[in-house]
Structures are given as C-alpha cells and as structure tokens.
Design a protein around this nucleic acid. Sequence first.
DNA 1: TATTGTTATACTCTATAACTATA
DNA 2: TATAGTTATAGAGTATAACAATA
Lengths: 151, 151
Amino acid sequence: MTDELPLRRTKRSLPIALLRARESVMGPIREMLASSGVNEQKWRVLRVLQERGPSELTQLADEACLLLPSLTRIAKAMEEDGLISRTTPEDDRRKTIAAITPSGEALIRAHSAKSAQIFARIERDFGAVRLEQLLDMLEALQALPREGEKG
Amino acid sequence: MTDELPLRRTKRSLPIALLRARESVMGPIREMLASSGVNEQKWRVLRVLQERGPSELTQLADEACLLLPSLTRIAKAMEEDGLISRTTPEDDRRKTIAAITPSGEALIRAHSAKSAQIFARIERDFGAVRLEQLLDMLEALQALPREGEKG
DNA sequence: TATTGTTATACTCTATAACTATA
DNA sequence: TATAGTTATAGAGTATAACAATA
C-alpha cells in the first residue's frame, strides 16, 4: 500500500478530534480530582459501579475503558482504600464481583456539586441543546458495529 | 462539599462519552499502526507535522496532545529513526523546530489507503452528514474558553 | 477446552520539578 | 526575569503473554 491519498486534516480526523475535545474538557475535572485522592481511572471505576451496581471485572473494565490487568491492580488498591469491595460469587467461583462501598459513594457525593458546576459551564458555553446532540452522537458512535462484526 | 446531587449517567458524561467513543473507533486504527512501527503518539506527531509544516515543540506538543517532556523524548527517538528532523533557528536559539522528513511522509503515505478505508467504514455506518456534524461539534468543543479565560 | 481473573514483564506515557540556555 | 526546551524522577497505564482456578 503506497497510495497517495491525502488524509483528512487533523481537526477532521475522528480519533484526533475526540482526543483534543476530551483534553479541552478535562482541565477543570483534573483539578477537581486532584483534591479527591483518586485519579481519572479510579474515578471512572467508581462512577460505573455506582451506576451499574455490583459488576464482574471484565464488564467493569470494558465500561471504564481499562484493560483487565490494569483493573486488577487498580481494584486491589481501591479495595485497600475501602472504596470498593470484591467478592467471589458462590455460583461461579472464577468470577470477581466488584461493588462500591459507602466510602466510595461518599467520595462521589463529595465531588458531585463541583462536577455539576463544571458541566453547567460547558453547557452554558456550548449550548444545552447542542450538547445533548453531541452526547447522542457519541453514544451512537459507541454503538457502531466493531470490526469483524456483521454490518 | 457534601452535596447529594446525582451525577449524570456515565453515557451522558462528556469526558466518559468522549473516551468510550474514541475507544470504539481506535480498534482498527491500532491494528493499522501495529504494522507501521510507530505508536499512536508518534503517528499524531507525524500527522500534525505533515499538516502544519515545521513547528516549534511547544506548539507541536499542544496539537498532538502530548506533554512537552514526553515530546522531547519521542522527538529524539523519531529523529534517530529518520522520521523527523530537529533544527535550532538562528533568530531564537532557545527554540527547536521539528519537521517531517521524506521518510516520515512515506510512512504516512504507506498507511493512507488503509486509514481512508477505516474512515469510510465509519462514514458508512454512522452516516456521512451526521459524521460531519459530529466533527463540527468536536471542533467547537475544542474552541471553548478554558477555565480562567474570559467567557 | 473455554472462561475469568491474576501475575509477570517490558515498554511507554504522565506529571512535576529542577535545570540549562537563550532572550 | 521570562521563555523554550531538556533532564530527572516517581508513579502509573498499556499491551502481551503466561498462568491458575474454575466451569
């Protein structure tokens, strides 16, 4: 493959545009997390567990955008910090079920006001309707068939 | 701050939605890069340099979504691999200007057909018009005023 | 034999600070 | 004194493979 098709401008490259857009909204969120004792990855784990309830690690890794070996380590640290619990279900002892603890819920609550404020600012600057449209599209993008699937 | 405001569902959390959307499109791109000898970060550096021409490292780091210390290391490796050049301009010897080499351009060309094919598939599955709208919005999101700026 | 998770390993990026050279 | 970049360092994530336990 030595074709000479010009690529899209980087601003119109979907992976680069998604990354830059994310960087542009992460600034205040990183500030918020800096005072929380958890990093971005742990925050995502807490958020997913709070939302979905107790979850198998494989599914949790997928939803928090982490590899399973990363999650294994992170979950261990979070358990030691009392933010989540880990249990092995009797009906399938290969699995590990992670669940958020009251302490983990408290951590989320402690930052919910600031988080809402950050979102409100984006909503104000970007436009509420447009922001909902953007979220609709991002959700649809996630739902696209992966390589190798029928489509 | 111990408010109890419930947070948005993770699917409607902008940072998480952006990350998940990006993960969902990176699969085939990672496959493509695996055969190229460069990782995602180096690919972004090449793409930005090809598009913008010779650039100062600070600006390049910003556009490629890298920290300057990371770029320092990456640029050194890429120079050794012959993918970019680095020069110090006479008029301001503090600066370093990076530029893509013919070798670097060839690497991009070698993957442009595959890259276009990946994009075409997304365009087909997601809808061409909708995809352009999404890119418009992502571009606008990047342009929002940062924390601390007027707005 | 497949699945779920853990461990091991090497590599890389992140984040911060300290430092050098230049302006 | 500020700027541009480099170096140093600690910590963490990524990616892959090998492994153990269970189904």
